[in-house]
Design a protein around this nucleic acid. Structure first.
Lengths: 195, 195
DNA sequence: TACATTATTGGACATGAGTCTAAAAATCAC
DNA sequence: GTGATTTTTAGACTCATGTCCAATAATGTA
């Protein structure tokens, strides 16, 4: 949206191309070799930049990868519109299918970032803020709309059900199972089983 | 159960105290400092053993910790008995309360091992075999008994619901939230909401 | 132009996981 | 006892993350 709002008093400015080059190198290398086999040194070399320059901008490999691989690509364009005519179950299934497709394409870095969030509390907070919470809110909001329209019992706990939904595919993914359309269907079926 | 069944032809035998000393040292140090701050070198030193001796028995720090922290302590004594007179909902809640208590006491190493399972496929397979699958089966079996007794709709997908249950607390745990009795109650309430 | 400020660079540094090797030690078979 | 076998030990080694530092480069201001 807005340009930098920080006051630049003086001093050498950031190399305007460095951040983009580093992110591009990170994306390319992670696709080629997988998260674990990409070192910061290799990314810096590929980007034509000193290793320290990477650390100037990102506190850790995980922070860099989160921004490089996800913030650009996975905008929440898949977010279901409240009034698109279809039922909540169909909306949820469509949303999950899109999420699964994206997760499947980026399975290796996603799993690595969830791992990093366990091992590094500072990154964990960033990860939840930028990645987990927004996606959880989409599903919670969808379920609350479903309750408002009577498609889901008003006595159900939408937040808990949202945790069921996310938990179900996290659990599957973190245990090395596939995320496919059949899983999306099964999740939706159980969430709405009670009507 | 049985003693070593391997044929010992000749050669120096394993130090009979080494494995126990290493596991004890691992448990003690992980409780004192947390998983991330315990090095294999420190464990070996504490156990009075060479570092290589640790690697002779366990392929990685994660494998050692899994065995040291969990295999002894967390036997499935909490497994609900099929015929204890109480309903399936109460059984599930009681089981979850026990599981949560144990996870809470070992939150740091559990999260670290789940992380390690993402980063190391070989350990991931071991972790699922020894840790994840047995606990998943307990809940699935409980839900299937509930269906057989008519306490849960026969059309429900017990395996999917079991993934909901485990996924819900994995998701909570991996996002740094507490696992408490209220969560156990909420999970059970939603699983059985449809009757 | 000179100065203060900040970024970049290249390298050293600390630490930890995991591998490898060579020598010493403990066992069995002969 | 001698030899084959296997474990233990100590230490070197590779590679990674992340920190630290000093020299240099690029900017705004006086």
């Amino acid at each position: 949206m807005s340009e930098r709002t920080e006051k630049r008093t003086s001093g050498r400015p950031h190399d305007p191309e460095a951040a983009g080059a580093v992110k591009a190198a990170a994306v390319q290398l992670v696709r080629e070799r997988g998260y674990a086999k990409v070192s910061i040194a290799a990314i810096a070399a590929q980007a034509g930049v000193a290793r320290q320059t990477v650390y100037n901008r990102w506190p850790s490999k995980a922070d860099l990868m989160l921004e490089a691989v996800f913030e650009e690509a996975w905008t929440l364009t898949a977010e279901p519109k409240p009034e698109d005519g279809s039922g909540a179950a169909a909306q949820l299934e469509a949303f999950l299918v899109q999420v699964f497709a994206h997760l499947t394409r980026n399975m290796d870095p996603v799993r690595a970032l969830i791992a990093a969030a366990q091992e590094d509390a500072a990154f964990g907070a960033v990860f939840r803020d930028k990645f987990v919470a927004p996606r959880e809110r989409v599903v919670t909001a969808l379920l609350e709309r479903a309750q408002a329209r009577g498609e889901l019992g008003a006595e159900r706990d939408a937040a808990m059900l949202s945790a069921f939904v996310h938990g179900a595919f996290w659990y599957r993914m973190l245990n090395g199972r596939r995320l496919d359309a059949a899983l999306a269907r099964a999740i939706v079926a159980e969430v709405f089983a009670a009507g």
